[in-house]
C-alpha cells in the first residue's frame, strides 16, 4: 500500500478572480476528502436539424437524437 503523507503549511492567497463556475463543478476554499465530478454533454452534428418542423420524440421511443426526419 502506498503511504502518502501531506504536510500543509501556510497557505495565503491575495486575490482570486473567476469568470464562471460551470454546471456540476465546484470551487472550494478548504479541505475535502473525496471529489467525484461527472459531466455529460451531448450535442452531435446530427442534433442540428434543418428541415420540416416535426414534434420531438415521445417517451419510450429510445431515440438518441431528435426526430427521425433529420437531414
Amino acid at each position: 500500500m502506498i503511504q502518502f503523507k501531506v504536510v500543509n503549511h501556510a497557505l495565503t492567497v491575495g486575490q482570486i478572480e473567476i469568470l464562471g463556475v460551470s454546471s456540476a463543478s465546484m470551487f472550494q476554499i478548504g479541505d475535502t476528502d473525496y471529489v467525484t465530478l461527472n459531466s455529460m454533454f451531448d450535442t452531435p452534428p446530427e442534433s442540428v436539424i434543418v428541415g420540416p418542423m416535426a414534434p420531438l420524440p415521445l417517451p419510450g421511443g429510445g431515440q438518441e437524437e431528435g426526430p427521425a426526419n433529420a437531414e
Binding site: V21, S25, M26, Q28, D31, T32, D33, T36, L37
Partner: peptide, 15 residues
C-alpha cells in the same frame, strides 16, 4: 455548482 468556503468530506456531482 458549488462555491464552498469551508471544509467538506465528500462531493458527488453530476450533470
Amino acid at each position: 455548482s458549488s462555491l464552498l468556503c469551508g471544509n467538506c468530506m465528500r462531493v458527488n456531482s453530476e450533470s
